[in-house]
Nucleic acid binder design. Structure first.
Length: 125
DNA sequence: ATCTTGACTTGCC
DNA sequence: CGGCAAGCCAAGA
């Protein structure tokens, strides 16, 4: 269990009910802006202990692949149960539901200071 | 040690 | 819209 993994798990647990975050966003908050792929790997491994359905890709699509333990239909159901809109083709208006970390939470997970000073936001925001 | 893969993202046609 | 390459980090072969 690497520190990065621990962080990622911590971050994902911070995502509130009814909100979503992208893989890249989680990676960013965990201190490695480009480790989005690793986030997916971690979710696949620790999904059972996490609100895995609140993590989607940046374009708003549910990224789960066929072979995974989890599937899009279940994710769609779980999201809708929290009030998040999911279209027929599994697209979510992510900007509408995106979770932005608060300074308090950032401190709790020891997010490097410059992330806050520069007011770094999720990629593309 | 080296190479491939992946629930990703971005940039460049 | 769509495809493709590169970057990233860890796991497995």
């Amino acid at each position: 269990m690497t520190p990065f993994k621990q962080k990622v798990i911590e971050i994902i647990r911070l995502i509130p009910y009814g909100r979503v975050a992208s893989y890249g966003q989680v990676a960013l908050y965990a201190g490695s802006p480009r480790a989005a792929r690793e986030v997916g790997w971690i979710l696949n491994e620790h999904g059972k202990d996490l609100p895995w359905w609140r993590v989607i890709n940046k374009q708003g699509y549910l990224s789960i692949r066929g072979g995974s333990t989890y599937d899009k239909s279940l994710q769609k159901k779980l999201l809708e149960a929290e009030g998040v809109e999911v279209s027929e083709d599994f697209e979510v208006p992510i900007e509408k539901y995106r979770w932005i970390i608060t300074p308090e939470e950032a401190q709790r997970v020891k997010l490097p200071e410059d992330y806050l000073e520069n007011k770094i936001r999720p990629m593309g925001l």
